[in-house]
Structure formats: C-alpha cells, structure tokens
C-alpha cells in the first residue's frame, strides 16, 4: 500500500493545531494541592447515522453503513468516519468506501474544519481495489438547520475527489422524523479501477422516515434514487451495471 500522504493535508492539520487552546492560568492564590474548582472532561460518541439493508431495483442488495465516532473536547476532536457496504451474493467481502481518521477543530459556532487520512478498499480481504488518501472536510449545520458534510480527498496517486452530503430532519411528531438526504460526488480526474470518471460522478437523493424509540435507537425505512453521469456512467455501462437506479432501505440509526 502506498503511504504517500498529500502535503496539503499535513499542512492543514499543522495550521489547525497552531490554534491550540490556551490552558487556564489560575490567577488566585490557592495551595497547589487543591483541585481545580471546575474540571473539564472529554466526551465521545459513536453514531451509526445509517445502518441499513438496501434493496435496489436493478443493482445488488447490500448492507450499507455510515458511521462516525468522535472523542475529545468542545473545540478539538478526533473523528473516525466510515462509509461502506457489503454487497450480498457477490462472493466478496465488505468494502470501505471510506475509512478515515480526522482531526477536527471547531472554527465557528456551527462548523468544524477537519483534516486527516483515509483508506478505501476491502475490510478484511483483498477483494477490492485499495488506495489511501488525504482528506480535508468541513462539517456543520447550515442556516435552515441543514446538516452538511463536505470532503475533499486527494489520493496517493494525486487524484482529487469532492463529495458533499446534506441532510435535514423534518419533525413530523416528537418521535417521527422525515429525513431528506442528498449526496453529490465530483472527481478531478479519471480513476478507472474505481469506476470514477472526471467531472460530476453521481447524484443520490433519498428520504428516510425514522422513528426514535429512544434517542439512541431509531429504526427507519426509506427510498433513494441515484444517477451517474459522464465517464462514470460509461464505466458502469461497460461493466453492465445500471447508471440510474432506485431502491428502498430498512435500517436503524444507532447512537452510543
């Protein structure tokens, strides 16, 4: 595996860490062995935003996950993010579309700037093509309460890809949420082994209806539509895959 990490990402991480939090300097006289009157604790969580069984109209059925976990304080956090799927009945092991370790810093009330490294490839096997990449991300909440997660990836071969996800929770009742969701992928260069063409790759739009039995456990059902564009669509046609598909999902949102 090639571990050439783009300088861009390292640079960005360094820039972000230089803003590290100044430690409190107690300007009042107390004996050194007394505890601080207030102690700050780190926190962490694991969120499976999506853990679902996807049943496409044309493509193969698959188990899909969209996971993010973080640990840290209010300003600085470490994220582990992953999206991936295990296509059923293809005889292959599960695949990380992304497995990323990111450093995250709160740069505005609703925005985190993130930078890190990522891996794409098989989970436990060599069933899938592999690559590593550096990633810069901006995650947060837009006015109108739209949650967005944008990422710029630069692979070990210098290929650039951009992805943007947005979702919104419409509260139907106190426990029932309708969540429209969209994903847009764009690539700066063609990477044939990953089926990536140059330019707009794909647009995916979906909606999920989620019932929060508790905040931590919320099963849902949903539907999606996806369309590929340009060379990306051509690659799919060449392998006999559909370039436009719809599907339904059933899954659960989990928070620990």
């Amino acid at each position: 595996m090639n571990n050439r990490i783009p300088g861009l990402t390292i640079g960005a991480i360094l820039v972000m860490t230089t803003f590290s939090v100044a430690q409190a300097e107690d300007g009042y006289d107390v004996p050194a062995d007394w505890p601080a009157p207030m102690v700050e604790h780190n926190t962490g969580m694991v969120l499976f935003d999506r853990l679902e069984y996807s049943m496409p109209d044309k493509g193969e059925q698959a188990i899909v996950w969209d996971l993010q976990a973080w640990y840290g304080g209010d300003i600085n956090r470490v994220y582990l993010k992953s999206e991936g799927e295990n296509v059923q009945a293809d005889g292959e092991d599960a695949e990380f579309e992304s497995l990323e370790l990111r450093y995250s810093r709160l740069i505005a009330d609703f925005w985190e700037l993130q930078g890190g490294v990522g891996y794409q490839g098989g989970v436990f096997s060599d069933d899938h093509e592999e690559r590593t990449y550096g990633v810069m991300g901006l995650q947060g909440t837009m006015p109108w309460l739209i949650e967005v997660d944008g990422a710029l990836q630069v692979s070990d071969e210098g290929d650039i890809a951009l992805s943007l996800e947005g979702e919104y929770d419409l509260r139907v009742t106190q426990r029932l949420y309708l969540q429209p969701r969209t994903e847009i992928s764009v690539a700066g260069s063609e990477v044939e082994e990953f089926g990536v063409g140059k330019g707009l790759n794909s647009v995916k739009v979906g909606a999920r209806l989620r019932y929060e039995i508790t905040r931590r456990f919320a099963p849902y059902i949903g539907a999606w539509w996806e369309k590929q564009y340009g060379d990306t669509a051509d690659f799919s046609r060449a392998t006999g895959d559909a370039t436009e598909d719809t599907g339904v999902v059933a899954g659960v949102r989990l928070m620990f």
Binding site: A24, G27, M38, E40, D74, T141
Partner: peptide, 21 residues
C-alpha cells in the same frame, strides 16, 4: 453559550479558557 456544543461561558470564554479571576 453555544447550545449546539453545550458550551456555556461568560464573555464567550469557558472557565478553562480564562486567565485569572
């Protein structure tokens, strides 16, 4: 404060971020 992050403070700085009384 920042409700989203559950940070609460005086003058925008939490106790851990201030120097001196």
């Amino acid at each position: 404060g920042n409700m989203e992050r559950y940070m609460w403070s005086f003058d925008g700085r939490k106790f851990s971020e201030v120097t001196g009384p």
